[in-house]
C-alpha cells in the first residue's frame, strides 16, 4: 500500500508503525512519529496499523541554535 512518509509517497508493506520503524532501521529512542497530524508515543507504535493514504512524519532532534 502507499503512504506518504516525510512528504514522499512510498510503497510499504502492511503493518504497524513499530514494524515500519524496524524495517527502516531507525533508532526508536531518537525518533518522533507524527501519524496523520497526531503524535504517536513510542508505547503506542505497536498498536497503530498503517492504512492506505496515511501521512507519516518521522522526525528527530538535531543540532540547532
Amino acid at each position: 500500500m502507499r503512504v506518504t512518509i516525510n512528504g514522499k509517497s512510498e510503497q510499504v508493506p502492511a503493518g504497524t508503525i513499530e514494524q515500519l520503524v524496524r524495517q527502516r532501521g531507525l533508532k526508536p529512542e531518537a525518533l518522533v512519529v507524527e501519524h496523520n497530524q497526531r503524535i504517536v508515543r513510542q508505547a503506542q507504535w505497536a498498536q497503530v496499523r498503517l492504512q492506505e493514504g496515511d501521512i507519516l512524519e518521522l522526525l528527530r532532534f538535531v543540532g540547532g541554535g
Binding site: G7, V62, G64
Partner: peptide, 16 residues
C-alpha cells in the same frame, strides 16, 4: 537549544 527535523531515511545518524 535543539532543533527538530525530518529523519533522513537513508542515513542512521546519532541522537543529539
Amino acid at each position: 537549544t535543539v532543533a527538530l527535523r525530518r529523519v533522513d531515511l537513508s542515513a542512521g545518524g546519532d541522537n543529539i
